[in-house]
């Protein structure tokens, strides 16, 4: 078996709301291997987003251990957290979260800006990613001129450009129709086949069934954690295999 990229032991998280605390994660154990494609399911409010945010170092956990690529993640200052995020993790959001006044290419290139890559170089790379995702001719369009599926593909390109080890996607297809959802999932599968670990939070069974493993959360605990027998790797991975 390959090595763990994400390892979580007895993870607890509470939200303080006035005097009482809301205990959201109540002891999560999780081991995700490098190169896996995993989905997290569960009813609304079960703590899926909370877990994903902790994995993405966007939020702190209260108790338990979290190892990202064998590095123990503890409370750290924001500058260090930003560096980890920039180097290890790519985010994909349900609502795309593109910057409205930047065109497609500039949006994709943004993570490299924070890595101080020169404008020319990062735009060239961004164009390359847009090309692979079939969006080259949209490079100079603003997000407001693009469809939901196009926006999400741009968000994927943005997540990929900094060469992350893990992609975290919180309901990436939640705002898309079925057809577009499948297209996005296909892309994510291909991303996964490049060797990048992909973790997807979703409500939809058919989305979950396109991942290798399905983790079900219930009331802050893992209810089930099982391999997906129906998983079929995509065969038409002409997009990313060359990388």
């Amino acid at each position: 078996m390959s090595k763990s990229i994400i390892k979580v032991d007895g993870l607890h998280k509470s939200y303080r709301m006035g005097n009482n605390a809301l205990h959201v994660l109540k002891g999560i154990d999780l081991d995700i291997k490098a190169g896996e494609m995993v989905s997290i399911m569960g009813s609304s409010g079960s703590g899926k987003s909370t877990l994903l945010n902790i994995l993405g170092i966007l939020d702190n956990h209260d108790r338990g251990d979290y190892y990202l690529d064998n590095v123990k993640i503890e409370r750290m200052n924001e500058t260090k957290a930003a560096r980890y995020r920039n180097n290890y993790i790519g985010f994909i959001f349900q609502s795309f979260n593109l910057i409205s006044f930047k065109n497609a290419m500039e949006n994709v290139a943004l993570p490299l800006y924070y890595k101080n890559v020169s404008r020319k170089k990062r735009n060239m790379q961004a164009l390359e990613y847009l090309d692979r995702l079939g969006l080259k001719e949209w490079a100079n369009h603003l997000p407001s001129e693009l469809s939901g599926g196009q926006k999400q593909r741009i968000a994927i390109a943005r997540a990929l450009i900094s060469n992350p080890k893990v992609i975290l996607a919180d309901e990436p297809t939640g705002a898309l129709d079925t057809q577009t959802s499948y297209e996005v999932m296909e892309i994510l599968q291909e991303v996964n086949q490049m060797g990048i670990t992909v973790i997807i939070v979703t409500h939809e069974d058919d989305i979950a069934h396109r991942t290798q493993r399905i983790i079900r959360l219930r009331d802050g605990l893992i209810e089930r954690n099982e391999m997906n027998g129906k998983y079929q790797p995509v065969t038409t991975s002409e997009i990313f295999t060359t990388n």
Binding site: A82, N97, S162
Partner: peptide
């Protein structure tokens, strides 16, 4: 968003 994608 900027912070999430690595802005210090």
């Amino acid at each position: 968003v900027q912070r999430a994608i690595g802005a210090k």
